[in-house]
Amino acid sequence: MQFAAPDSLDKAVKLLKKLGTTRIVAGGTDLLVQMKSGFAAPDLIVDIKRIDEARQITEEAGGFRIGAAVSCFEMGEHAGLRKAWPGVVEAARLIGSTQIQGRATIAGNLCNASPAADSVPALIAAGAIATVVGPKGRRDVPVETIATAPGKTSLAKGELVASILLPARPARGGDAYLRFIPRTEMDIAVVGAGVALALDGSGTCVKARVALGAVAARALLVDDAAKALIGTKVDADALAKLAAAASAACKPIDDKRGTKEFRIQVAGVLARRAAETALQRARG
């Protein structure tokens, strides 16, 4: 096993291209646990926290670009980001404990490809774009295309997510993320729901994205749930349809954290509650 801490993305990509298993340590909160259990035994660990570009939150096209090594806690300290995408920031600040948030990153949360990752439904709902850097250069892809199955990503050998771009918050837009856990903190989401929506001047929903976590092999973008809101005033009837659509989209499993029927039912409840919060935020 080797350790490297390059100071540029180019150097990181060159290292990652090497033969053998390579893993990136950004926050390390998943990787070190996997190494401890023997689940991961990389030949090379690449620490990306010495790369300036990965350490920054920058404004871009009215939105925000979040470097891959920016911790969730740092996201919460960024006033502009908090104002624009409160749901995404809340999701990031729900991951683990204060200690975990001091290390964990949303890029890491995305690339770890857990179906229960808290930040991912919020990012999907927000329409976030992942900037992937690799041997063939840079490419921008919607975040929902990164995870393909539990622990599996669409990234090629040598590629890494360098940053995540949150677009400009739409006028009269709002987002929210809620998750269900048995305790108040420290648990993996049993269900997660992210909603981002935008209203027109009359208060009619003109745009919506609804994403669910922990109810399928990867986070789901649920178009039917979004359709239930678009064109409505997001009234009780629309919210009930949203909840039904969210529940209908679930393909969960029974496991130690929850049953299928529980996840299906609560997915609808959380989608509705998240939409209510997003609506309030959109109304300002």
């Binding site: 390390g28 909160t29 070190l32 646990v33 660990i45 620490d47 404990s97 200690q99 975990i100």
Partner: peptide, 19 residues
């Protein structure tokens, strides 16, 4: 195992010594 790293609260079991 809580410590602070550059003033940030972390679990030292989830930080590599090399970092």
């Amino acid at each position: 195992c809580s410590v602070t790293l550059d003033g940030r609260l972390v679990c030292s079991c989830l930080v590599l010594g090399a970092e």
